[in-house]
Design a protein around this nucleic acid. Sequence first.
DNA 1: GATGAATGAGTATTCATTCAT
DNA 2: GATGAATGAATACTCATTCAT
Lengths: 219, 219, 219, 219
Amino acid sequence: MPKATFYNLPGEKRALIEEVAIDEFAEHGFDGASISAMVSRAGIAKGSFYQYFEDKRDLFMHLVDLVQQRKLAYFQERTPPDPNMDIFTYLRWMFEAGMEFSAVQSKLNAAVSRVLFGEGLYQAEVFRERREQTSRMFAALIEQAIARGDIDPRVDAVTAAFVLETLLNTAGVFILNEQEVSPSGLTAGSIEWLRSERSQQIMASLLHVLEFGLRKIDK
Amino acid sequence: MPKATFYNLPGEKRALIEEVAIDEFAEHGFDGASISAMVSRAGIAKGSFYQYFEDKRDLFMHLVDLVQQRKLAYFQERTPPDPNMDIFTYLRWMFEAGMEFSAVQSKLNAAVSRVLFGEGLYQAEVFRERREQTSRMFAALIEQAIARGDIDPRVDAVTAAFVLETLLNTAGVFILNEQEVSPSGLTAGSIEWLRSERSQQIMASLLHVLEFGLRKIDK
Amino acid sequence: MPKATFYNLPGEKRALIEEVAIDEFAEHGFDGASISAMVSRAGIAKGSFYQYFEDKRDLFMHLVDLVQQRKLAYFQERTPPDPNMDIFTYLRWMFEAGMEFSAVQSKLNAAVSRVLFGEGLYQAEVFRERREQTSRMFAALIEQAIARGDIDPRVDAVTAAFVLETLLNTAGVFILNEQEVSPSGLTAGSIEWLRSERSQQIMASLLHVLEFGLRKIDK
Amino acid sequence: MPKATFYNLPGEKRALIEEVAIDEFAEHGFDGASISAMVSRAGIAKGSFYQYFEDKRDLFMHLVDLVQQRKLAYFQERTPPDPNMDIFTYLRWMFEAGMEFSAVQSKLNAAVSRVLFGEGLYQAEVFRERREQTSRMFAALIEQAIARGDIDPRVDAVTAAFVLETLLNTAGVFILNEQEVSPSGLTAGSIEWLRSERSQQIMASLLHVLEFGLRKIDK
DNA sequence: GATGAATGAGTATTCATTCAT
DNA sequence: GATGAATGAATACTCATTCAT
């Protein structure tokens, strides 16, 4: 967790440091990210960095918090779904919001995901707890839907939660990658693409599979 | 591609070097992996490393090849499925083989996946093609199953292929992680765990979701 | 150009670093010069080197500047020649000052010349301009002397400038080498030797050849 | 001196090795030249190199011998000057031959000069003897010319020899550099340039200065 | 609280040379 | 006589972190 000095900084400066860190981690991963590069790009002294953060990991963990906060804020500022709605309607709402967040905050998302999945998935340690927290949240969602009669009671809640989490986490990159990429990358126009017909078709298909599976049902 | 020198090495030495490299990449990722650490653990001279490999990337690419070869071998040595079988029976066979491979070769798997998925740096360049090749393979599988009448023709083939690939890739780690881990990691006894009741339940649930979805169907 | 950090160093430390660098480049040339050797001899940390200089080339360029500054200072602190003097008197003054500079700053001179002349690698790029600047200066001197009637108008100014520059550049080493060298090199007593009769004779002969050529003129 | 094994090599292979070495030393100097690069370009085994030569220096010294031999051969295959000719006529002949040699064998010349002047002039050691040998040859030439009454007896023979040697050695590069260089360097067309009017004018001016000096003589 | 110089272990890679085959 | 694998010290340069000002 960043030190008090960091939070005492003028908001503008704090934002600049965060932005620079996002770029660096997104581009070079955790090990590859250079503190020297960050301080020089942010225009702060090398020593100041250690007055704001314990070390590199501390800064990174702050980005993890950031992504969580912003994602939450993003979800909350959308018209909240009817609490009595069907779980699949809720999932659609969630997928859509998640995709948009991935598109809008793609750098921050990349910075965190890249490390959490790449360097964390197998190595667990610190990030394990945070991941398990998310998993439990999904499991609770599933169990609730089973109780409500939306979801087939024969499916294992933990497994279903895993499927949900995994697809939600990767779908953003998948959909974005389906876009015809310009050589400069896909930063621009992602939101437009997300609202395109093909994009909507993918999302619908994804949710359909989740709801009804792949099996063709004979009438 | 490793140099001829490497292939001329006595099998034992070659295996040692590979093993050491697998450990190093699995633990530290691509950027974090240290050649110095590897040569010292393998007991070879620093200079010798460069007699065997062009550079770090060359060694890593060799591991990518290794995982591919071994996975293929692993699949081929199992009793091949009946070519006329239902796609879902085939998928079960595939998931089981994939899980076992992940369990048996967990370090190698981790070493490669973590870089390929996490440190996307190379993904764009060299690895992209390899990934797209796999994706096309899955898409073809789906289309075939649609043609046979196994899969609902309304699902988008590309999207379904993505779901398949993603779950196949991550399920191994998921199942392994569900095991109560010893502090030393999950290297030992993974196969036994995989054959445990809980493990089989997870796999069955996963395939059930894939086949019928989450939705409870009222009779 | 060295970084500000270098110029902020206490003069003593700065001088030590320069001295060590001069020795290293003089002895091993540009490619052969070892940064490790320099920092260890100067008693500074390897990392500090890069706090002072951009890289090896940056340090070397600083030595080039040094030689230029010191040579200029050396010339300026001598009683300046009468501006109306004959070009040949002026040349004698210049040769003498040049020889003395070579003797006093022989190591620095060697360090820079050896790279500039020998390892033409950089000559083409950065150093070329510096050299051409000197050549133009000599050509202007010649043209002026032609205009004044001192120099035979039939001689090509560019060619004459080349002869002047070349001899001025090499005469120092030549004269110093004519001294009976002690095994330890010629650092000590060079100035005394320069004032010796033999040394003066060589210099006089050199200037005579420049002025009247080798040809014996029959009366 | 190369070992017997080198001289036992088929002439073609020997020539290839020499050619590759010339390129390497010309391009990278002595310290910068890489034996690995040379053997790989020449297509011989690393070990074979050490069966042909003692070490890097040994190979380089062979190039020094080569340049000497070829220069000698070059001079000898030209119509030899009348033994009774005036020294200045002789010098013209010598300059012309020297320039042509520099142009034709520019790579070999560069390879050797670069090291001998750059790394050798100040460091002396091995090359010293070879240089002194040349100097003595020039001194003898001068003394002979003084005896014949061609050269002014007041000039110091050693000094005059130095002037001669220096100008002869550097004039080649000077003249070649006066050519408008193409970006690819001046390898092509050097001989044509050498026969151009401007080139001849430079050479004539150089010899004029050597013979009559710079001083304008009033009639 | 801010600074930025100092540090030395760390990096990937290349080197000339040896020597067993 | 030819080979090319083995070696380990060498290279220039970067790193995260400390600490005196």
